[in-house]
Design a protein around this nucleic acid. Sequence first.
RNA 1: GGAGAGAUGGCUGAGUGGUCGAAAGCGGCACCCUGCUAAGGUGUUGAACCCUUCCCGGGUUCCGAGGGUUCGAAUCCCUCUCUCUCCGCCA
Length: 423
Amino acid sequence: MLDISFIRQNAEIVKTAMINKGEKDATVVDKVLKTDTEWRQTVHKLDSLRKSNNDTAKQISVLMREGKKEQAQEYIKQTGAMKAEIKELEEKEKQLNAERGNLLLRIPNVPHESVPVGLTEKENEEVYRHGELLEADYIKPHWELAKEFSWIDFERGVKVTGAGFPFYVGSAARLQRSMINYFIDKALERGYTELQAPYFVNEDSARGTGQIPDKEDMMYTVPRDEFFLIPTAEVPVSNFHRNEIFEEKELPKNYVCYTPCWRREAGSYGKDVRGLNRLHQFDKVELVKFVKPEESYNELEKLREDAEHLLQELGLTYRRLLMCTGDMGFTQSKKYDLEVWSPGQKRWLEVSSCSNFESFQARRMMVRYRNEKGDTEMLHTLNGSGLALPRVMAAVLETYQQPSGKVEIPKVLRPYWGDKDYL
RNA sequence: GGAGAGAUGGCUGAGUGGUCGAAAGCGGCACCCUGCUAAGGUGUUGAACCCUUCCCGGGUUCCGAGGGUUCGAAUCCCUCUCUCUCCGCCA
């Protein structure tokens, strides 16, 4: 959610941002301003009416104490009309405020000036590439390796739950667990605080990070208890500090949190969902930052480096994309995607996206800090995957397979394997 | 799951219809005292929103959430949520 006073002063900037993000029409900006004006007028009227009502009540109180009953009765009679009008205005204010809120929720975050303008993924900029595009005849896609070694059991996953809920068996299970530990350990070295979070959240939390209204269909629900299964740790971790005010010296707050993630992914099929490419349940280590506004872009680069460092140490080939305005999402002001090279599939797989939300999420969740002047101010939030496991696993299996057929264990993971060399 | 108690400011806790946004204490901040520390003294210290806007200032709302009664509600009534204690169950 954008700051309404920012919109008042920068209506054209906001409209341009909307169009650049792919919205067909930006008239909602005019609508919100119109509703806002009306709302403020109503609030003003309501407040002054309430004041005179309060004043009257005070006078009555004085008269009652002095025993001047008749005079008090006169005042009481007067309040009748006022009360009716207050009630009417309250209704109007409530309705206008709700409308204003709904309109506000439809306005996306404004992209940072460094973000390329464009509507499709073609306009994303590849700003960095690391490693070589591995090519060899013996390289198989990970699902073939997984089948050969019985590492991932998709069929039994279907039997037990359904498509997109595989079992990891033996070495694959251990590989995944060792990567989770490695990711978390690295984050701890870099100053993040580890968090273990609930896997279900309530409606307020889902609303806080913007899953509802809008992206409700991505989440699994627990209807009887009115919970949502988290689609990412971003939801519980960002909401961890919902409705809180930090002291300036407490910032930045950096959290690392491993959770499974559940996504309904309705309508996906084809090569996108082959093997580990897209699942309904997957593991992810998430990084979340709460920072002072003036530091957020610097922190975004740090976050991105923290995620990239993992890929480098794992010895995987990857590229960094700076997402264009139309491909970066509603809530982001700047976003990088990290894509790892899958030599078995000869394609790039997204394993992380690192985003700065500026105050867009914070405003919704009312996460603030007290600045030097002592005023409360919205802080900035950022998050990024560090990293999403299944696609990293796919890339590791494919990249580290040997002509002999065996799969080598990346050096940084060997401490988690009793220094074994091969899976 | 059954029975009972409760929810007030950063924390503890008073307040059962009228100058209560809320006593007191603790904590925080500022200043004073002191060679330093400790102790002490004085003052200050919630949030959202509206108006004004250089600053100052004025106003409304908020005592778990939502509704109701009343000229007036932290205080009375209704609904919901959560917490605690005991019993049951349990990794």
